[in-house]
Design a protein around this nucleic acid. Structure first.
Lengths: 268, 268
DNA sequence: GTCGGTTGGCTTACGGCGTAAGCCCTACTA
DNA sequence: TAGTAGGGCTTACGCCGTAAGCCAACCGAC
């Protein structure tokens, strides 16, 4: 008696409430808020006020659903007014706009970005972070029509992908840290010959791999840089402040420019 | 009566058989063969001839075990004779050797590499693919002693990380594809407005995110490039052969060189 | 030699997961 | 108005990570 906004009475079972889009959107919400691991079929269904098995009427498998979430993220490029579908202002402008669009969606969904980057592709050249045949086609044909020969197109494609992949994974990774936990804040030595005293180590964080801690409220407690053994890692300690600083914004544009220079330099 | 090499009889329960190292090594074996998702506590234990709960005497949690696996991979750098711990032949040689060492371990463990790249870090600057305080210290202090000022060290550190991350994720991703499945080989349109007919879609592949199909024997069946709608993606179709080609080896060295040029160009 | 403690296995059990199978109400179509 | 298909629900299975506790084998002290 309280919640049905639309037509006839409705026992709460009205068909058609669910749809692929609605499910994928809700899943993305959960991932953004609590990480990939929290997006279980039961959790997604429950947020939709529905039983888990109902989702299977729309997605044959959780993997397929996650693929749809990835698609949904990538498709944010279609809505991005800054991103152009063709090179009206030259290939450089086209690629720069595309790159900034990708960065925008990567930063909008830091918990989901590892999904975009690591989910296995259907073919070896359907690369993250584009991951959509339509956008790949757009990029290849645009460069082609800008006078790139085939080798140059392929070189640009691979440069573009690996640059964005690396930069954005680094940047989004820096924002989604492991849960720092309460008690001892010491790190595992990890690099050298570690005898490992006992069972000191972090806690939960993720499940399979790309799952990332909730973080939400972290970001302050991470700085006790005196936790690190100063004697063992003097340079890290000296540069700690610089390492923690976030120049990603400015540096991205500069690095992007250099990557584009590299492409330009390869043109005949 | 058959398998005990060492001391007294042994009912098969002799303590000390298990160790952190042995467990981590076995886990890495399973991951290399069958992907991260296959490395369940029960599966690992069973390969060791032991019950799952016994592993918890050595690792408090599966996550901690996976961290140890990542450490183990990164520590392959320590054994790599091509990688030097200091810049006896200059910083360029040092970084190039380090980069090639990282590439070596990335390609040696393509199923595990996404784990290295996406596992949340303890601090925002403990970046993949180095992920070890000892190696980070080594790199920072080496560059420092080579005359880099602090800003230059940090710039080099970030360039190095993001370059390797992007390039190697692209390369290892190209080798670990989704299971192509038997029946219809058509892709999901994914990019444009896809109405999506029914439930056609791939099968199993992964679990959380970084899990990747077993692949082992794939790599042949991936080429039916006529599956792609030629009309919709003419440029992809035209470039399909080039896209499928693998120049990663040569291109890595060239791209690495350019990245190092970029660092050199930033020096005062 | 015996004996207590510690170590490193094992057993049991719980709740959550993805999902196969099948039911049944509702809404649309003829 | 009957028939049908779609979209929910229920039940159940086998796997997962792991908490709790048990017990044999070893080890150092007497």
């Amino acid at each position: 008696m309280s919640s049905e906004p639309s037509s006839s009475a409705g026992t709460g079972r009205r068909p058609g409430r669910l749809s692929r889009d609605l499910i994928a959107e809700t899943t993305l919400e959960i991932i953004d808020e609590q990480g990939v691991g929290a997006a279980s079929m039961r959790a997604i269904a429950s947020r939709l006020g529905v039983e888990a098995m109902s989702l299977y009427k729309h997605f044959s498998t959780r993997d397929v659903l996650l693929d749809a979430v990835v698609d949904r993220i990538v498709q944010e490029l279609d809505q991005d007014p800054e991103v152009h579908r063709d090179a009206t202002d030259g290939w450089r402008d086209y690629l720069a706009r595309l790159a900034r669009g990708v960065r925008r969606y990567a930063l909008a969904h830091p918990h989901a970005f590892p999904l975009v980057t690591t989910r296995p592709a259907e073919a070896p050249w359907v690369n993250p972070p584009l991951r959509s045949l339509a956008w790949i086609e757009s990029m290849l044909s645009t460069l082609s029509s800008e006078g790139f020969d085939d080798d140059e197109v392929l070189f640009a494609y691979r440069s573009f992908n690996s640059f964005l992949l690396g930069y954005l994974l680094m940047e989004s990774g820096a924002h989604t840290l492991r849960d720092p936990q309460e008690g001892d804040g010491s790190f595992a030595p990890s690099g050298s010959n570690d005898p490992v005293p006992g069972g000191l180590s972090p806690t939960r964080t993720d499940e399979e791999a790309a799952e990332i801690a909730d973080a939400e409220t972290t970001a302050e407690k991470i700085d006790p840089q005196d936790d690190i053994e100063v004697a063992d890692y003097p340079t890290i300690h000296r540069l700690a402040a610089g390492l923690a600083e976030d120049h990603f914004g400015e540096e991205f544009d500069r690095a992007l420019d250099e990557m584009l220079d590299g492409i330009a330099g390869r043109l005949a």
